[in-house]
Amino acid sequence: MREGTMVEAGTKVSSAIRGSGDAMVRMDGVHKWYGQFHVLKDINLTVAKGERIVVCGPSGSGKSTMIRCINRLEEHQSGHIVVDGVELTNDLKRIEEVRREVGMVFQHFNLFPHLTVLENLALAPVWVRQTPRKEAEESAMKYLERVRIPEQAKKYPGQLSGGQQQRVAIARALCMNPKVMLFDEPTSALDPEMIKEVLDVMVELAHSGMTMLVVTHEMGFAKTVANRVIFMDRGEIIEENEPGEFFTHPRSERTKLFLSQILAH
């Protein structure tokens, strides 16, 4: 029933419809306010299974808010968000169901400082999925190997470098076998030499077929792995396109301005 309005929206819907048969995440006319402030305005976005989407846009444009709505770290006020067939409402059981299937990586890692790396990884599998600890730890080790730091398993997060911490955070999310991974500026708190080690892990993850929604300003990453790039400004999706087109022929003035600022650096 919402489809009607989306068709009217014209230019921007083509790709949204394209993935809708096999949609992993669907956002339909989502609006959100902080008090009087309208942060998300009529967001329509469909992420197909296996799709990799990069979200960019100026600071304060609502990128974080949008992806945090997908696992209900933020509540939206109107519109629909459906993740893997489950619509997000006030029902806590459903919210937890969605969160089990959605992994998230934060800008500031947010590892649990009182637990070792291995305990950080095994926490959710043991308590949420009710996996036996031994099994959970074995699979945690597998993921640590995948992010290339199995030797740090017994250390505490405070003893690791930023890049290592972020890779642990990625492994922690992967331990729950999520169907979608959300990344909120995973590299922007890192020193340049650590960015690469995190991006490498993310690229590998993309090649393994994971559905990913990544907020980042790493344009190289966008060019190599993204199926689509989304540009947000002032709470709206202004433009979305394949990376090739997006970078070479941006359609709107604001996108051009933004790209010129980003690429100038």
Partner: peptide
């Protein structure tokens, strides 16, 4: 795109 006005909250 880009012309959505700020609406008052519900």
């Amino acid at each position: 795109p880009g012309t959505h006005p700020d609406l008052p909250p519900p």
